[in-house]
Structures are given as C-alpha cells and as structure tokens.
C-alpha cells in the first residue's frame, strides 16, 4: 500500500476503491485518447516533409533528402568534406544503417558501439519524426546507443521519409505497442536541433554540452 496514495485520498476526501474514480482513470489510460492536434500537423505527407525540413533548418540543422539508401554513404562523405570533418562515423546496430553500402567510400571508417569522448561523428537513426516542430524521435538500445546522440561533436540522424508524421502522438505510434501503451526503451530522445544554450547574457550559442552540429538525412 502506497502511503502517499492514502494521504492523498484523505486530503481529497475520497475512498479507496471508489468505482467511479477508478473507471474514470482506467478509461483515460485505456482509450489512448488524443487531445487537440495543431492543424499544422494535419497536412498531406509531402507538406509534412517540407515542414519538417523547414522547422529543422530554423534551429541551425542541415537537412539532405536522398532518394535511396544507396545515396546515404556518398551524402555522409560529402557532408564531412564540406565541413572539414574526419572521415569516420560511429553507429549502433540499427538495421537500416547496417544496410548502407559503404563500398564506394573507401577512406571512410565505420566504427560501431556506444560513444566515447574520442568519437567525433555519430550516425543514428530516428524511428519517427514529428513535423509540427521538426523533432526526431530516437530510441536507445543496441541499435542506437544513447551516448551516440550526445557525446560526439557531430550527430548525423537518418530517417526514412515514411517515418515522418505530423504530430508527437503519431510518432509514439511508431514504437511497438502493448495493451497499456508503447513499450518504452530506456530512453526516447526527442531531438530538435544541435545542443544550445542562452545561459550567458541571453546570447544563443549553438553547441553546448551535446553535439555542435546536427545533420539529418531523409531517405526515400
């Protein structure tokens, strides 16, 4: 018996096992009801992708849209050359990333595993993107070790075009669901841009403790 719950019931003047209250809560949890969804999240898919890109570019993020997975390796190589970055990426065991054909990028080193302080560039994969705010949903796990999203100076995130949805509520649906709701990994990171701070004199600085650069590659 949770003593806090009994104290709260006493304060509210209600009894344990009050059927109506239990029903109310059960319904609220089981209905998976949605609250108001902003109209900007209820557009056709092409508009959602355009908005997704626009919102990310508004927060100092670069976005590339490639037609096919075979184009990803060359896009990463291009990005590294343009930004004068080392030709190395670290990634997890994500199936989509595993399918990338690196054979044409012979000078690119692919490392795998969680990030250490020494890793400069990470490649992760978002299971969903919400276009209402240009937000990438990344689930931690062996596929995407969570440290890859925060330790390296540059984070590249891969997302399939079909995983871009309008609102957060639709993004949650992309996780595997059980009876009560989505089966949560240890962390779901909602990422909207490179890390930033305005803690000193309200001056916005891109690149605080997390990545200083964020590049998003949309596939398909």
């Amino acid at each position: 018996m949770n003593p806090f719950a009994s104290n709260i019931r006493r304060a509210l003047g209600v009894k344990a096992g009050d059927f109506e209250r239990l029903e109310m809560v059960r319904k609220h949890l089981d209905d998976h009801g949605r609250n108001l969804i902003p109209a900007c999240a209820l557009r056709c898919h092409q508009e959602l992708i355009d908005q997704f890109i626009q919102m990310l570019e508004n927060v100092e993020t670069t976005v590339a849209h490639v037609n096919d997975l075979v184009d990803v390796a060359s896009e990463i190589a291009r990005y590294q050359i343009v930004n004068d970055l080392p030709h190395v990426v670290k990634c997890g065991a994500d199936a989509l990333i595993a399918d990338i054909d690196w054979s044409e990028q012979s000078d690119l080193t692919i490392l795998s595993g969680p990030a250490t302080g020494a890793d400069a560039i990470s490649l992760t994969r978002a299971f969903a993107g919400a276009s209402e705010t240009g937000t990438l949903f990344v689930a931690s796990g062996p596929d995407n070790p969570v440290t890859l999203s925060f330790l390296p100076e540059t984070n590249i995130i891969l997302i399939r075009a079909r995983d871009i949805v309008g609102c957060y509520e639709d993004a949650w649906l992309k996780l595997p669901w059980g009876a009560r709701g989505p089966q949560m990994p240890r962390t779901v990171n909602l990422i909207s841009g490179p890390s930033r701070t305005a803690d000193i004199e309200q001056t916005l600085i891109t690149g605080a403790h997390g990545p200083r650069r964020l590049h998003v590659i949309i596939v398909g």
Binding site: M55, V59, E132, T133, T135, M184, R186, T187, V188, N189, L190, I191, S192, G193, P194, S195, R196, G210
Partner: peptide, 9 residues
C-alpha cells in the same frame, strides 16, 4: 516551439 532535447526515460 520545443526545447532541443525532450527525453523520456
């Protein structure tokens, strides 16, 4: 419109 990071643990 949203903070850079919103983390669900």
């Amino acid at each position: 419109s949203i903070t850079t990071y919103t983390t669900f643990s």
